[in-house]
Design a protein around this nucleic acid. Structure first.
Lengths: 264, 264
DNA sequence: CTAGATCACC
DNA sequence: GGTGATCTAG
């Protein structure tokens, strides 16, 4: 059987809020080492990859590998029935066709269980090569979200340019154009406010702001976001989940000459 | 060239929030002494006049007079990309066709520039005679806004009657009628809460509440509003901008017998 | 002033 | 239903 206990329901709630707009259905893969998920977004453009390591759970038992197909919207609905500080336990039989969510209030006064039916989902599990990236930028996630939102009012596309000094986000549209530069800055009181750039080679890539803004829904998961860029490789937008794992998004760069005309 | 630096972006943000619902496009006039704007509202009924004196800016340079035509909605969109406490700098070349907004976060970690295209706008610069008014009322701007909003639920028109003791706002409509009187009151701990009446002659005038409510969008600019009234002259609704200038609105009184029938 | 939540508009 | 605006609490 599979059983996983998490002291803070809020973590799972935020995780689903961050994924459900991008992905309708996905398989949660359970193994003795982790609970993980990998799925393409609805339009088959972006990839979502999540991992929660078993040692991060208050209790974790997985007798044999399981693949649990879920509708993320329904799962999110279910999780909304848990209070943020509820203790949450996921349970499934090895041969069952359902996943049970158990919510206990911190003081044990209330406990609820919700049972969701599992679905059969075709999933193409993609191998994600472990690449060396030309540029890695760690910055405050709230600032990244704000930049993506602001540029979204100006244009559809953002050009990200990383140099050793900082990262520049540029966009243009009908009403004008905008450049937002965030400087490397490690001289901060709180490490959460730092911007750190690890550069092998300067890089400049364009991405659709629509997806970047969807990724930024994961902001509540972590005070920092990590961007990884390399020429001709998908951008990685990674949110670390405290001591447990991560939620990462992958998005292929836009090629210049398909920008406006939509030609294939 | 033109260059103006303001330590608090929030001031410009509030200014545009207060004007953009009334005026679509307008020319910002730059001179060595001030940045100013004058425009009729979309329906050509009310007049908006704004002035920010150059000595109120942290830095101000204007080599020659410039008239910069802007779409106020686009300018507002752009300003929404600035944080409230950003330092904001406006820049334009004498011969250019664009205005650049530079935003710097207080800690210099982030800096953004937005470039908006300028427009050609016909503007009839009106001379506003410097009149002696029969009545001048200074009162808390929040109270004025609340009164305009409340009376707007009762009727379309407000009758303002000023006597030496106070100002009475009256309105009536299908569901009934309302009178709200604010007394002169200078005996307050905080000068922002004072109501001061300067009366040459009692006066009673009617105005369309629709415009009054639009003017009240400027409330965040100042804790006090100044109303100036004279028979047969436009009402002036003035918001002082701390040490820098003002945003004023002008609205002609309604003539009694054209109230309901709309006869010309 | 930021963050969260609720509410109104699109 | 999603987005933006407002209000409140920290």
């Amino acid at each position: 059987m599979f059983e996983a206990r998490l002291d803070q329901a809020v973590l799972l709630k935020k995780l689903l809020e961050a994924m459900k707009d991008l992905v309708n259905d996905a398989n949660f893969e359970c193994s003795p080492s982790a609970l993980s998920l990998q799925a393409m977004d609805t339009s088959h453009v972006a990839l979502v990859a999540m991992q929660l390591r078993s040692d991060g759970f208050a209790h974790f038992r997985c007798d044999r590998n399981l693949s649990m197909g879920m509708n993320l919207n329904n799962m999110s609905k279910c999780l909304k029935c848990a209070a943020n500080d509820d203790i949450i336990t996921l349970k499934a039989e090895d041969t069952g066709d359902s996943l049970t969510f158990l919510f206990e209030s911190a003081n044990q006064e209330r406990h609820s269980d919700f049972e969701l039916k599992l679905m059969d989902i075709d999933s193409e599990q993609l191998g994600i090569p472990d690449t060396e990236y030309s540029a890695t930028v760690k910055m405050p996630s709230g600032e990244f979200q704000r930049i993506a939102k602001d540029l979204g009012t100006i244009g559809d596309t953002v050009l990200m340019s990383v140099t050793k000094d900082g990262i520049k986000f540029s966009s243009s549209g009908d009403i004008g154009s905008a450049n937002i530069t965030v400087r490397q800055n490690t001289n901060v009181k709180d490490q959460e406010d730092a911007t750190v750039i690890d550069l092998q080679e300067p890089v400049s890539l364009s991405f659709a702001l629509k997806y970047i803004n969807s990724f930024a829904k994961a902001t509540p998961l972590s005070p920092q976001v990590i961007l990884r860029l390399s020429k001709d490789l998908p951008l990685v937008v990674e949110y670390r989940i405290q001591d447990m794992g991560h939620l990462s998004f992958y998005l292929a760069p836009k090629v210049d000459d398909e920008d406006e005309m939509g030609e294939e």
